[in-house]
Amino acid sequence: MVVEVRSLCKNYGSVRAVDGISFDVKDNEIFCMVGPNGAGKTTTIECIEGLRKPDSGEIRVLGLEPYREKEKLYQLIGVQLQETSYQDSIKVWEICQLFSSFYKNPLSYEELLKKFELYEKKNSYVSKLSGGQRQKLSIILALIPNPEIVFLDELTTGLDPQARRSMWTFIKGLREEGRTIFLTTHYMEEAEYLSDRVAIMYHGHIVALDTPKNLIEKSEIEEKIIFEADVQNTEDLKSVNGVSNVQINKGTITVYGRGKDLLTNVVNHLQSKGINYRNLQTKTPNLEDVFLKLTGYKYEEDKSEITI
């Protein structure tokens, strides 16, 4: 285990931001904390990074106690903070060189700039970079110490979909280099796509922690098969293996059920009965459905940007 957290609590005044959470992060995995804004993700990650002092509980990062052994810790981990900006009129190479001077065995920032396709921006002012380029720079600064663990807090927030996709590729690449990645996000599809394991946070608690696949399976949320056909009798369809319920609405039929052969079974049934179906689509449950089921919290409504 590279990160161990036991009964971590952190209050801000009377608000309990993190309420006794415990979890481990394994070596060389992409571990993701997901949850709406204000769930306690940033507070948790900043306690683990040694930037905040926990009110109670224990944290070990690579065997170190973060808040007390900062100097040692920061030689071993790389940190990207939520919404950092950089000095006015500093240039890309200047901030890279500055950060290199902080570490005992820094990686070559020139190589990192090349790898992240930022080398041609070397002499640009940081303030002139696009949002995506600035986030790439913040990863580069986090990688300069050649860290064993990289902490990325809301890395892709505010990026356009294309920039976010390219960021995902880089993050997966970091794991291939043997690093552990600890990230927070409030994008469910990001957590589902990237992570080896996901901790779902809500109101300062971890409500579930597992691989995205297991979380979805264990949630027992049903798959939906939707198509158009002239069917009057649903009893036949209900008897198909795996199907639990069927609804008809003006010629649109929705079949609910579970099991990996569900779609095949339903299609075979329709064909054997000679029923013509059109516009067939399936809706498999995703992490967002799991989150909704676990918390009863409608995710799309949450578009506000609050930092805790």
Binding site: Q75, V79, F102, Y103
Partner: peptide, 8 residues
């Protein structure tokens, strides 16, 4: 804060 998350 960013400088605080470095060894300096």
């Amino acid at each position: 804060k960013r400088f605080m998350a470095t060894p300096i």
